[in-house]
């Protein structure tokens, strides 16, 4: 039951985050790159002010699967590194990005070799 509730929360909060993005798209005609950057920075901001972990505890994947989660892991890494020293402070954030980036670049390369882009057929 508790697990099921977790999914409901993830669905609701995840859907809500996407809906806010959709409102921005409808109102301002922002392109997808801008939306992604904005939500990444939102995640960074929420993590910096310390709110993110409360939302994460509540919503789980609802906030970590949107790109806001990516922003928060970056700050988490930076926070960890700052305990060690200056060099680690500026590099550990990127270290936390490494998983996602590696996956995106590798799969991007791999799938672009296999697949070709096609015209939309609406």
């Amino acid at each position: 039951m508790e697990m099921f509730l977790g999914y409901v929360k993830a669905f609701a909060i995840g859907g809500l985050v996407c809906m806010i993005a959709q409102i921005l798209i409808n109102k301002t005609k922002m392109t997808s790159a801008r939306i992604l950057v904005m939500f990444l920075l939102l995640g960074v901001f929420l993590e910096l002010v310390g709110v993110f972990k409360y939302i994460e505890n509540f919503a789980g994947a609802g906030i970590t699967i949107p790109i806001t989660g990516f922003g928060s892991t970056i700050v988490k890494g930076a926070k960890e590194g700052a305990k060690i020293g200056l060099f680690e402070a500026v590099t550990y954030g990127f270290r936390n990005m490494a998983g996602g980036l590696t996956a995106a670049i590798f799969f991007g390369f791999f799938f672009a070799l296999i697949f070709r882009s096609h015209s939309k057929k609406a």
Partner: peptide
């Protein structure tokens, strides 16, 4: 994406889409 808009852009899958689609386009 044409249907969902923000619903498929904001999740991390949308980030993957924005990496793979130009790679496929420009190969």
């Amino acid at each position: 994406g044409a249907k969902a808009g923000g619903g498929s852009i904001v999740p991390i899958t949308g980030f993957a889409n924005s990496v793979v689609s130009p790679a496929m386009e420009f190969n």
